[in-house]
């Protein structure tokens, strides 16, 4: 079975449920390198995304576009705006299609990564959410089924967190804590990894 709107809606519901426990974990992580509100901000974003009704919608691009607009309406924070940018990019690439083969997820995520980099200005290696997105899109290359996608995505996020933990942050507010950030997870990368894990481990 290919990726459909049903998978997307179920994924949003799982991510939304995960925020109940993740909110404070992310706030604490962000308070070490930023102003301590990443969890609260993402909770508001996922609250609004989870409110979006997908009943009667079978176009993958339309559903992703609805989620992008919800994210953009919920926050103007950098991370939230980048999430909206990535979703909007994938929405445009999938409009008019009701099913997306799992093998197409990797190129879609690559396009989302490139759009996020263009909007936010981060480069690969800056220790941002872009590096997590890049790790997942690279790991999914060649994955042709849902089980493979889930397993590779979770492993890629874990590896990215470990790989970048001992690097300094080079972007955004956290770049000002470059030395202090060594040994810590970037809050945006951590959020991406935890939410990916919640969607993939429990299955959609």
């Amino acid at each position: 079975m290919n990726l459909t709107v049903t998978h997307i809606a179920a994924g949003v519901a799982l991510a939304h449920a995960r925020m109940k426990t993740l909110e404070q974990e992310l706030n604490v992580a962000d308070s070490r390198l930023g102003d301590g509100d990443t969890g609260g901000m993402l909770r508001r974003v996922l609250d609004l995304m989870a409110e979006q009704r997908m009943d009667g919608i079978d176009d993958v691009g339309v559903s992703l576009g609805i989620l992008a607009k919800a994210a953009a309406a919920a926050t103007g924070s950098s991370l939230g705006t980048l999430l909206a940018t990535g979703l909007l990019t994938m929405s445009k690439r999938t409009k008019g299609r009701t099913e997306i083969p799992w093998s197409e997820l990797a190129p879609l995520l690559e396009q989302a990564r490139d759009a996020v980099m263009a909007r936010g200005g981060a480069k690969l290696g800056d220790k941002t959410v872009v590096d997590a997105l890049d790790a997942v899109s690279s790991a999914l290359a060649g994955a042709g089924d849902q089980a493979g996608v889930r397993a590779r995505a979770v492993a890629a996020c874990d590896e990215a967190l470990v790989r970048f933990r001992n690097e300094p942050c080079r972007m955004g507010r956290a770049r000002m804590y470059a030395d202090k950030s060594i040994g810590m997870d970037d809050p945006g990368m951590l959020a991406f990894a935890r939410l990916t894990e919640s969607v993939c481990r429990r299955g959609t």
Binding site: D35, D37, M41, R44, A72, A73, A74, T75, G76, S77, S78, G80, T81, A84
Partner: peptide, 12 residues
């Protein structure tokens, strides 16, 4: 925007 967050694109 919200406290210490940028304004949304729609409000801009």
């Amino acid at each position: 925007g919200n406290v210490f967050e940028g304004p949304t694109v729609d409000s801009c």
